[in-house]
Amino acid sequence: MKEETYRRPAPGQDHPPNDSPGYKSTARRAPSRPAVVLPHSLSEITGPSQRAARLDSGENDLTRQRMGEPLGERIIVQGRVLDQDGKPVPEALVEIWQCNAAGRYHHPGDQHDAPLDPNFYGGGRVRADADGAYKFVTIKPGAYPWKNHHNAWRPAHIHFSLFGPAFATRLITQMYFPSDPLLSFDPIYNSVPEGARARLQAAFDMEATQPEWALAYRFDIVLRGRNATPMENV
């Protein structure tokens, strides 16, 4: 039997370190010992790709999940799910969640003194097409304060969840907006190695804007690719 395996990220180049002192919650939640390197077996090269999950057609439009339209700036967020070779990850399930335009999550744990919007729930999902392309319609999330340090504010962001083809490719991340002045102050964004941070910023996409209706942003997501040389299995 021949099985392919997924490339491992180069240490320190792509992902944040687990222990990132500026982000205080990591102090007691970051494992202190190095992860044990696990050769890829069927357990790692298979994964919950969610092919069977049935999605409603409107789940990618976060402005139409309630009785009326949410307040805020309507935006389109679209992009492609790719692997490191630039090949599309077809039919990837993309999930997002975000706060409303005022910076408040529809979540019982969010105590920020900003209004809830009865017309905005803030969660959506979509299945990418055969070319890896996905599209959401939503409103631009607000910045919100958090308790990490004095006067700490999260830059506007949308949380993204991707399964990809394998257990090894599972990724949860956040998308930020270009030129946000809060980015340089945010310990979560800045936990990412400097050379990789900008990959979390969406690009303003003039071509995809819709006149009289919405601005658009492009956010491509790149998951781990397969090794070029398939591993020979007994």
Binding site: W97, C99, G123
Partner: peptide
């Protein structure tokens, strides 16, 4: 064309209902 990996970020405290 080779592409650079999208970095990981925390799920945060407010992932919810949908997922």
């Amino acid at each position: 064309m080779s592409r650079a990996l999208t970095p990981s970020q925390t799920i945060g405290p407010f992932y919810f209902g949908t997922i």
